[in-house]
């Protein structure tokens, strides 16, 4: 049932969106884009959660802010349209990669624990971002209000090109994850074995990080940098309750993410005052709640109560 919500084919879906009385082409594409984004966050997030690196996504998300701010200032300074989406997202991606680099350096030095390194990096870069936003506001360089949308997301103000960019980045990250599914699985389950089989574990970890940055940046406009971590974690965590088989878990996470993106964005398009990111995440959270209770593999109230496996006496 969730799987039918997976995005790819645009034609039937657009028809479906017409049926949902989303006459406005802008909104249609935005809702569709949010679906793609949700699917990608679900898929990429599955491996992030399995490797217990969810907090990394929070740090990366928050760290994009100074990148967005500085890109905005740069655009304004050279007299270009200051809200050129690709440039702002490029700035965001560079800031996120800087954050990942800082965390890696701190870990390499072995002086700070990972959680502390993540928190320090988050605080440092998000703080810097807030200062840059404040400066932009004071300078009054044109209309800076659009930048708020990157904090908590907005569907209603999204342009068609923004939505296509979001969908494109999301699908790119999702395709890469599917291509490396086998390698990511082994790396998540048993990194030592991955190394013994000759997989370049370090490089694969870096690729995974880049994919997280990609979906984070893709989701900035619709979900916002504060709540993007929730879209990486919640669909993946919810999917885990439905199966013990990773490919199926990943498919469920993709579906739950896509469903949350579409439903949340649709509600947001109807009620433009409400923050889109929050709505999308709340839909995902509802699915998580249901999964926690009724999930067929690990839910609290499993319907198919399997007899517990008989264990051999050691």
């Amino acid at each position: 049932m969730f799987a039918t919500a997976t995005p790819p084919a645009p034609h039937p879906l657009t028809t479906a969106l017409d049926w949902l009385a989303l006459g406005d082409h802008n909104t249609q594409i935005a809702v569709l884009g949010a679906g793609c984004l949700g699917a990608a966050t679900g898929l990429v997030g599955t491996f992030l959660v399995l490797r217990r690196r969810a907090l990394m996504a929070d740090t990366l998300g928050h760290s994009t802010l100074p990148g967005i701010g500085l890109a905005f200032v740069l655009l304004a300074a050279i007299g270009a349209a200051p809200r050129s989406q690709p440039v702002l997202l490029l700035g965001a991606a560079m800031a996120a990669m800087l954050a990942a680099g800082l965390v890696a350096i701190m870990q390499r030095l072995r002086r700070v624990r990972e959680d502390a390194a993540l928190a320090i990096t988050l605080g440092c870069l998000f703080g810097l971002g807030l200062v840059v936003l404040g400066v932009i506001q004071q300078l009054g360089t044109g209309n800076a209000t659009g930048l708020d949308d990157f904090l908590d997301g907005s569907i209603a103000t999204m342009r068609v090109n923004d939505a296509w960019l979001m969908a494109g980045l999301a699908l790119l990250a999702a395709s890469a994850t599917i291509a490396l599914f086998k390698e990511f699985t082994l790396m998540a389950f048993d990194p030592e074995q991955a190394r013994l089989q000759g997989l370049p574990v370090r490089r694969l970890e870096a690729v995974q990080l880049v994919l997280v940055v990609l979906v984070t940046v893709a989701g900035l406009r619709a979900v916002g940098l504060i709540l993007i971590i929730a879209m990486l974690v919640i669909p993946a965590a919810a999917a885990r309750f439905w199966s013990n088989h990773l490919p199926r878990v990943a498919a469920f996470a993709t579906g739950i993410g896509a469903l949350s993106g579409i439903v949340g964005a649709w509600i947001s398009a109807q009620a433009s005052r409400l923050p889109a990111g929050a709505l999308i995440v709340l839909v995902a959270s509802s699915v998580f709640g249901l999964s926690l209770c009724f999930g067929s593999a690990r839910g609290i109230w499993r319907r198919t109560a399997r007899s517990s496996p008989t264990l051999e006496v050691i």
């Binding site: 291509a179 082994l186 389950f189 030592e192 089989q197 088989h245």
Partner: peptide, 30 residues
């Protein structure tokens, strides 16, 4: 002692198949 997450969503047969991942190679399906 395998230092793995025993709650990992993987079945017995999948774990054994993982022994072949290096051999199967990049971009190839199981």
């Amino acid at each position: 002692r395998e230092r793995v997450d025993w709650n990992f969503p993987t079945r017995v047969v999948d774990v054994v198949t993982m022994g072949l991942y290096g051999e199967i190679g990049w971009l190839r399906r199981i």
